[in-house]
Each structure stands twice: as structure tokens, then as C-alpha cells.
Amino acid sequence: MQIHLDQKDVSIIGKDLLEYAETLSEALGMDTLNILKEMKAGDLNHLILTFNHYFSDYIELLDSDHRMSS
């Protein structure tokens, strides 16, 4: 599955990724609270890298031009 992130509204990217992470981690039987805590432990770039660390096998994050690096 691919998720396209709207780079024009970066204020909602973090919130959206946290919601995806919560849903996915619960569905996959992962430690949701620790994953969300880790994602929130830094800036937006850290949040994206952490999301990719846990979920890149299931979701590919895309910005308007290309795949977001992991």
C-alpha cells in the first residue's frame, strides 16, 4: 500500500502517521504504546524514519514527487 503525504500541509503529516501507526501496530500485534512514544520522541523527520522502520514492509510513504527515504 502507498500513502501520499501532502507536503503543502506538513502540520497534519505527523498526526496522520501516528494514526496509521496506531491502527497498523494494533492489527499486527505490535507494542503500540512504545511505537507511538518512540515516534513522538523527536521532530517530524524522526517520526517519519521511525514509521518507516516499523511499517515499511507494509506501507510506502510518498511525497508529491518521490518515495520518502527510510
Score class of each variant (00 low, 15 high):
M39Q: 03
E22N: 15
S56H: 10
E26D: 15
K37V: 02
D65A: 11
I13G: 02
L44Y: 11
D57V: 08
H4M: 07
H46S: 13
L17Q: 06
L24V: 13
D57C: 05
S56C: 10
I13C: 01
E60Y: 02
L18G: 03
A27C: 07
H4L: 11
G29Y: 04
N52D: 09
E19A: 13
S64C: 05
E60Q: 14
N52Q: 11
D6E: 12
Q7G: 15
T23G: 06
A21K: 03
S56G: 07
A41Y: 01
K40W: 00
I3W: 07
S25K: 03
L18V: 02
Q7A: 13
F55K: 04
S64V: 15
I13A: 01
K37W: 01
V10H: 05
Q7T: 15
L33S: 14
I35E: 00
H66V: 10
H46P: 06
N52P: 00
A41Q: 10
L36Q: 03
A41S: 15
D43G: 06
G14D: 06
Y54A: 03
T50C: 15
N52E: 09
N45F: 07
L18Y: 11
S69W: 09
I3Q: 14
N45Q: 11
G42A: 07
E38D: 11
Y20I: 08
L47E: 01
T23Q: 12
N34K: 13
L18C: 06
D65L: 08
E60F: 04
I13N: 02
E22I: 01
I3L: 15
E60C: 11
D57P: 05
Y20L: 09
E26W: 03
L17E: 05
M1N: 13
I48D: 00
S70M: 05
K8H: 13
Q7N: 13
I3M: 12
H66P: 00
L33F: 09
S56Q: 07
M39K: 01
L36F: 04
I13P: 01
I13H: 03
H46D: 08
D43K: 08
D31L: 08
I3Y: 12
M68P: 04
S69Q: 11
M39P: 05
I48K: 00
L33N: 14
E60M: 11
Q2V: 13
E22A: 04
H46Y: 08
L49S: 09
F51I: 04
E38M: 02
D9P: 01
E19R: 15
D16K: 04
I12C: 03
L33A: 14
I12L: 02
E38A: 08
D9K: 10
G14W: 00
D31A: 11
E38T: 05
E38Q: 07
I59A: 09
A21T: 05
L5N: 11
T50E: 09
N52H: 07
A41R: 09
S11G: 10
L44R: 07
K8F: 14
T50N: 06
E26A: 11
N34T: 10
D6R: 08
I3K: 14
E22K: 15
F51Y: 03
Y54K: 06
K15D: 14
I59L: 13
K15C: 10
L62P: 00
M39L: 02
